[in-house]
Measured scan of single mutants.
Amino acid sequence: GTEDLKEEAKKALKKGDKERAKRALKKAGLSEDQIKKFIKEVL
């Protein structure tokens, strides 16, 4: 589900894998702006 994808994105970001995080967030249905915001909040 969406929460799982967001968790996956957080883990990817902590490993420095932004591309993987972006893919997971796109799958979760987030827009580009939401993805940028999510990444900023996590990092």
Rank of each mutant, 00 (worst) to 15 (best):
10 K>Y: 08
19 E>W: 05
1 G>T: 14
13 L>C: 06
3 E>M: 09
7 E>W: 07
40 K>N: 14
8 E>Q: 10
22 K>M: 14
34 Q>T: 03
8 E>N: 04
8 E>A: 09
43 L>R: 05
41 E>Q: 11
4 D>R: 13
4 D>F: 11
27 K>I: 09
33 D>L: 07
41 E>H: 10
8 E>R: 07
25 L>K: 00
18 K>Q: 13
14 K>D: 06
37 K>G: 13
30 L>M: 12
19 E>T: 08
32 E>A: 08
9 A>P: 01
6 K>T: 07
40 K>F: 14
13 L>S: 01
30 L>V: 02
37 K>D: 15
41 E>A: 12
16 G>P: 01
24 A>H: 08
12 A>E: 05
42 V>G: 04
32 E>K: 08
43 L>Y: 09
22 K>E: 14
18 K>D: 09
38 F>S: 03
27 K>N: 09
39 I>W: 06
9 A>H: 01
6 K>R: 11
33 D>H: 07
12 A>S: 06
42 V>M: 11
29 G>T: 00
39 I>R: 00
28 A>C: 05
39 I>L: 09
20 R>L: 13
15 K>Y: 10
20 R>V: 09
11 K>V: 11
24 A>R: 02
2 T>P: 12
4 D>I: 11
43 L>S: 06
6 K>D: 02
17 D>W: 07
8 E>C: 07
31 S>L: 04
38 F>L: 07
43 L>F: 09
3 E>N: 11
32 E>I: 08
3 E>W: 03
16 G>R: 03
23 R>C: 10
41 E>P: 01
17 D>I: 02
34 Q>G: 05
28 A>P: 00
20 R>G: 15
10 K>M: 11
3 E>A: 11
15 K>S: 14
6 K>G: 03
27 K>E: 14
41 E>L: 09
7 E>Y: 06
18 K>A: 12
43 L>H: 05
29 G>I: 00
39 I>N: 01
7 E>D: 10
15 K>T: 12
2 T>F: 14
39 I>V: 06
8 E>P: 01
39 I>M: 09
3 E>Y: 04
18 K>L: 15
39 I>G: 01
27 K>D: 12
4 D>V: 11
14 K>T: 08
18 K>R: 13
14 K>R: 13
5 L>T: 03
7 E>R: 10
1 G>P: 11
11 K>M: 09
12 A>D: 05
12 A>M: 09
28 A>M: 10
17 D>A: 04
42 V>K: 03
3 E>S: 10
26 K>N: 07
29 G>Q: 03
32 E>H: 07
26 K>D: 07
41 E>R: 08
27 K>C: 06
11 K>G: 07
2 T>G: 10
41 E>D: 13
34 Q>A: 10
6 K>A: 07
14 K>G: 09
38 F>A: 05
4 D>L: 12
30 L>Q: 01
1 G>R: 13
37 K>W: 06
13 L>G: 00
16 G>V: 01
19 E>H: 06
16 G>E: 02
4 D>T: 11
31 S>P: 04
5 L>R: 03
43 L>K: 04
40 K>T: 13
7 E>V: 08
7 E>N: 10
16 G>L: 04
24 A>Y: 14
10 K>W: 05
19 E>D: 11
40 K>L: 13
29 G>L: 02
29 G>R: 02
13 L>E: 01
30 L>N: 00
1 G>A: 13
32 E>R: 07
33 D>N: 08
11 K>Q: 13
38 F>H: 04
4 D>P: 07
31 S>T: 13
36 K>H: 12
34 Q>W: 04
25 L>A: 01
3 E>G: 09
5 L>I: 05
8 E>D: 07
43 L>E: 09
2 T>R: 10
18 K>Y: 15
30 L>D: 00
6 K>I: 15
11 K>P: 00
12 A>V: 02
32 E>Q: 07
9 A>R: 01
11 K>S: 10
40 K>I: 13
25 L>C: 01
11 K>Y: 04
5 L>G: 05
4 D>S: 13
33 D>P: 06
4 D>Y: 13
24 A>G: 02
26 K>A: 12
43 L>D: 05
9 A>S: 02
15 K>A: 15
22 K>F: 09
5 L>N: 04
37 K>V: 10
9 A>D: 01
14 K>P: 01
15 K>I: 13
9 A>K: 01
9 A>I: 07
41 E>M: 11
20 R>F: 11
22 K>V: 15
13 L>M: 05
21 A>M: 04
38 F>G: 02
36 K>T: 11
27 K>T: 09
